[in-house]
Design a protein around this nucleic acid. Sequence first.
DNA 1: GCGACAG
DNA 2: ATCTTGTCGC
Length: 165
Amino acid sequence: MYRPYHPPADPIVVRDLTQQQEEMRTRVRIEPLHAEPTFIAGCDSSFPTPETILSVFVLLRYPTLELVEKVYHVGPVTVPYVPGFLAFREAPNLLKAYEKLQQKPDVIMVDGHGIAHKRRMGIAAHLGVLLDTPTFGVAKSLLTGKFEDPAPRPAAGRRCSTKAN
DNA sequence: GCGACAG
DNA sequence: ATCTTGTCGC
């Protein structure tokens, strides 16, 4: 498969960002949700032009998933993409979009990995710490580590248990 | 030294 | 991430 070329990252900067992640990882909490969520958000960023970042947040009511709010923020790209440091490139702009939400979510789905990261500080964990809000990563490809394919989900309408679930 | 490398 | 052409599976 085609692999993009990543410009060499400034080692001194990488060292500093790594240090920031090492500090932030101590603030990551892994625990179950304290209550059933009422609102769940999803966020992602795109790049209309190489120097422009567009971040979006959608707020959905849970569990119906009806769209409640949709906000975005457009800003300049100031950081290059460096594997392992995606958050420093996208989180700042995502935060600006987040601030525009009238209603804050109980949990957030984030594009990219969470703790499936070399220092357990993928962008989802990064945002979770900064917003002090539960988050989880939704990535489309592997960054690091190994995993086993999950068992296929049962077809709708025919659940295993007969009891309420 | 050589690959791998979220988005 | 983004762009673009070609191929594959249902």
